[in-house]
Nucleic acid binder design. Structure first.
Lengths: 321, 321
DNA sequence: TTGAAAGCGGTACCAG
DNA sequence: CTGGTACCGCTTTCAA
């Protein structure tokens, strides 16, 4: 027998008060309620098992205190980590996150955005959006993460500087030919950082392999770099996933890491600590990014700004340390 | 200028019809509308940029077509994979999933459940719930995944059989001392499967290491097994995460895999394909489990049933194949 | 074929 | 300090 839900009316009746009083008690305001009445209401709530209906509340209040979060792929550890950090931060501030995945498809992405807006989310967090989804007629605050969009504010790690620091570390180990594994078009910053470091050290750019941001892409890129005429003694991978793929390509070719080829990756998700060898990484400060993104959504500032956050170099074995 | 939302009233007014007609057009029912009127309404919707308010709709209809999904940890690839499969399946059936993490804490878990119920979810999916959260006064269907609870239906892989098959494979490679890495109390099935296989082959149980379901736990367990007086030549890990930790312990001790020690893991998340060596795994059929769980929620069957799904053995290098 | 209106559950103002 | 009530946006019955 699916007991039909208890409403505020039931509570009011049971406690012998008006619905307004129930509301005052539940929300602790905006009017004061006599202690004794209050106790009666609380008691009624308890014994009836009343649970306020957030849907009705949202309709009345015009806000759901819910954020929509769209990632390209929930299975990617980086995005999973980001989602976790965002969920935590939002929860701490009394918000709930509606999380969904766009499967890396712009059409799905737009559909999900529409779906979320329909559900009256109070704000939208777009992680690495595939393209610029037309956000003009959106009446809630939007923030892009790990990608800057023309019309909305964004939060991202210091890609260029982080990459530079990672490559500089490889240079400090004495490497002179440093390859790069990078995504397709639209992600120039990490490549620029790699060039910055090389140029500053008077080194020529090593071979570059383009690949999707995936383990499979990294594996293919690793093989490509190994077969290169200008075979590198070190590789900077622009994502953890790619680095893991590079590692597998290296192992399968019988190349020793870091002795024959050293590796440094960008991202710093937990799995890099347990790869073999453990990966030296440039870590994205996910927690601070999440905090900033959620904060921005809540205060709802007007101007379009791009926030960047310093990365952290974590030394492990793959670089030769 | 945050343009305030366009409502159905605006559309009605603009199109010169009543709000009822707008509703008929938007929902394609329950009444027919004259083609010409319909066109006018559609036009109004388009030019005004009207987006139906799902909150109001939910209040009126009494259903949100939203499921709540609670995982112990969104960062765990297994749960991430499960969430992804559930999201996909739910989306295909016109539902949206409110996904959140309980951080492995029973108190948080209960709070999240309450929060979700407050938001009028149409059903609850509990992944590996920490304990039995009191689900008596819950008026929506609930399903547990990867853990069976006394009061609700559940969906899970054939743990025992899957583990048996994995261990049998190790036995077929000639191993006679096979260790086990398993979680704490409350997860007996995989251990039973390991025993089943051993007993059937007339082998004595190898050493058992208890560990949390994490990479760190697996690493500690791996070291423990290596130091065991009855050092195994093969290890069955009851989760991918633990297997990855075992691998790192093995590498760090200079043990060759699979030559010195072979490894097979339960779960089959994507990262196991790129570990070194790639892991032979007993894969959970996440897609079918998600389909069953979502389906069950939607048809809302009454009886408490426990559904199990056959696993799949995926042969890679870590077993010696 | 269309319009008017009731009501979903809750909030908060206005009276008392 | 508390009760009555209008309204949030939408669906759907009833009447026209």
């Amino acid at each position: 027998m699916p007991k039909d839900p208890v409403t505020r009316n039931d509570v009011a009746e049971y406690a012998g008060v008006s619905t307004a009083v129930v509301s005052y008690v539940v929300n602790e305001g905006p009017r004061k309620v006599a202690p004794e009445t209050r106790a009666r209401v609380l008691d009624a709530i308890r014994t009836l098992g009343y649970r306020p209906n957030a849907t009705a509340r949202a309709l009345r209040m015009g806000t759901t205190r819910t954020f929509g979060l769209i990632t390209p792929d929930g299975g990617n550890p980086l995005f999973a980590g980001l989602a976790k950090a965002i969920d935590r931060e939002a929860a701490a501030r009394g918000y709930v996150v509606l999380q969904t995945s766009a499967d890396g498809d712009p059409v799905t992405e737009r559909a999900k955005i529409a779906e979320l807006l329909t559900r009256q989310v109070s704000g939208l967090l777009l992680v690495a959006p595939t393209a610029d989804p037309s956000l003009d007629d959106v009446e809630v605050p939007v923030i892009a993460i790990n990608r800057v969009l023309p019309t909305v504010s964004s939060v991202r790690p210091a890609y260029r500087e982080g990459a530079r620091i990672g490559v500089e570390h490889l240079i400090s180990h004495g490497h002179r030919t440093i390859g790069l594994v990078i995504g397709g078009a639209g992600h120039p910053e990490r490549e620029l950082g790699w060039r910055d470091a090389l140029a500053a050290a008077g080194l020529a750019p090593g071979p570059v392999a383009h690949a999707t941001f995936s383990r499979a892409g990294g594996r293919a890129a690793g093989r490509e770099l190994l077969a290169s005429s200008d075979r590198p003694t070190a590789i900077f991978a622009s994502s953890d996933l790619q680095a893991v793929g590079v590692l597998s390509a290296l192992h399968e070719a019988g190349v020793r890491v870091p002795d024959d080829v050293a590796v440094v990756a960008f991202d710093g998700t937990p799995e890099t600590e347990y790869s073999w060898p453990p990966l030296t990484v440039v870590r994205q400060p996910l927690e601070r990014m999440a905090e900033a993104a959620v904060g921005r959504l809540i205060d709802g500032a007007q101007a379009v700004e791009a926030f960047t956050f310093p990365t952290e170099l974590i030394l492990r074995r793959s670089c030769g340390c």
